[in-house]
């Protein structure tokens, strides 16, 4: 059994009458990349803040490296590198000064932090920007700097809350590449995301959350295997006809999902099913056969899409 770095049982957080996190259980093991996947408002960020020892729990057990965050906040935070959803870089300082002072906030000696800056600038591909003010950086650069900043204290656990939200595709891929490298170095990653492709790319294991509860847990591949079919056929007949033809399509396929703009058909062989559709005299305007994804898992579990 691998070492459990984060251990949660019945973890609960309420804001007034609203239950943001409703008694969740999970363990994060050393060296793994663990994801919290769910739509906005699922309770992911609240769970992250409790783990980050910046929010107290209302019920349940939570230990991070064996310590209780209610009692040992500063000691737990010393183990963590935190990349928040909203960048909070120090706008008055330059890129390298941001790294420097953040290391100092952990109480680290000047010489140690100065040595670390070079390494982190290289890692974040920001060597050329070392003296630039943070404001002048692009969104992707700011994110990379925030990640580099979180690494200045050499944390055992790196926590990333929606790391690529708001970034363009190229910036996302650069960021994913950097996170892969960290994973290879043995850093434990804890990631929240509402992007299923991100969860599939980065997470060894994940929990799917909705409305404060865990809907399913497992590796991306096992979740897809357990909750979806091998392939998905997406067909579009035009928004006025989708509903009308749904009944007829149901006779061809065991499980279909009607979305406002398209119909998803869960099958082991998409092409064959498409052939059957044409054979029964239906002519979709567009069709697409693809592999099942975590998006389909979420749809199956909650009846809703991740991004609404």
């Amino acid at each position: 059994m691998p070492e459990s770095l984060i251990h949660a049982r019945g973890l609960t957080k309420k804001f007034g009458d609203f239950v943001a996190v409703n008694g969740i259980d999970f363990d994060v093991h050393k060296g793994e990349s663990f994801g919290l996947l769910g739509p906005n408002g699922a309770g992911k960020s609240t769970a992250m803040r409790m783990i980050g020892a910046t929010s107290s729990r209302d019920a349940g057990v939570l230990t991070i490296l064996g310590k209780d965050p209610d009692k040992h906040g500063p000691q737990i935070r010393a183990h963590l590198g935190v990349v928040p959803q909203q960048d909070n870089l120090d706008m008055q300082l330059s890129v390298s000064e941001n790294l420097y002072i953040y290391g100092r906030y952990f109480g680290l000696p000047r010489a140690f932090v100065k040595g670390k800056i070079e390494e982190l600038l290289t890692f974040a591909q920001l060597e050329e920007k070392r003296d630039a003010k943070v404001e002048a950086l692009s969104g992707g650069m700011k994110r990379r700097l925030t990640i580099a900043r979180a690494l200045v204290s050499e944390p055992e656990i790196l926590m990333l809350d929606e790391p690529t939200t708001g970034l363009d595709p190229q910036a996302r891929h650069i960021l994913w590449d950097r996170l892969f490298r960290l994973k290879e170095q043995g850093v434990t990653l804890l990631i929240t995301t509402h992007f299923m492709d991100e969860a599939e790319q980065l997470c060894d294991r994940l929990i799917v959350m909705d409305k404060g509860s865990i809907m399913a847990e497992g590796s991306p591949a096992s979740l897809i295997k357990d909750y979806s079919s091998k392939e998905v056929l997406e067909v579009r007949f035009g928004s006025d006809r989708n509903q009308e033809l749904a009944e007829k399509l149901r006779t061809l396929c065991e499980r279909i999902e009607e979305l406002p703009d398209r119909i998803l058909m869960y099958t082991e062989d998409g092409e064959a099913l498409l052939g059957q559709i044409y054979a029964s005299g239906m002519h979709p305007k567009t069709s697409l056969v693809r592999r099942s994804s975590l998006e389909d898992v979420f749809l199956r579990l909650t009846g809703r899409t991740l991004i609404e």
Binding site: T54, R77, Q86, L89, D90, M91, Y105
Partner: peptide
């Protein structure tokens, strides 16, 4: 700038 959010994610109080 939310600078305190960043500060309080470290081992400071």
């Amino acid at each position: 700038d939310r600078i305190y959010h960043g500060m309080l994610a470290t081992s400071m109080g």
